[in-house]
Amino acid sequence: MELAPPWKAPWFLGFGFFFAVGWFLFGWVWPAPSPRQPLRYNHAVHIANGMGCVDCHAGGRDQERATLPGLDTCLMCHQEAVTESSEEEKIRAFAAAGREIPWAQATRVPRHVYFSHRRHVALGGLECVDCHGAMETRTEPPRYPVGPTTMDACLDCHEQRKVDNDCNRCHR
């Protein structure tokens, strides 16, 4: 009897096809679990009320690191109830408990990368939206990075804008 070559075997075809499907599904469609935020912060409402990015994310323009707002920042407006939202109430609950709001940082670069907001925003003239996306449309807090924080994305942008790609400028 003539033996069929193994790549024609049905089990092999099945394995190959579903392996490829699984690779796609697990790798790209269901991304790694993302952090949960302690309260459902609404960027759209705040921005519509005339607030700018660095009002809460201090340092995002002229410091190396942008920051997440501390409780004090929130309480500047939310000492008293502004809305009837139960989410807003959580701020005062944190304040009453004497705890900082444990924001989860969604966007981060790897630790071996030196990234400076000052270099990109204040000196390079980028806008926040270029990397962080259109936050003014978001009613839920982000749970995973909006823009791509891959080296490819960095290099592409650097090439477009004719910024040099010396490794040492970013890798540390």
Binding site: A9, W11, L13, F18, F19, A20, V21
Partner: peptide, 12 residues
């Protein structure tokens, strides 16, 4: 084919 497919999905 189905058996192989299940194994493939699991493996991926």
């Amino acid at each position: 084919f189905a058996g192989g497919g299940a194994a493939g999905l699991a493996a991926s």
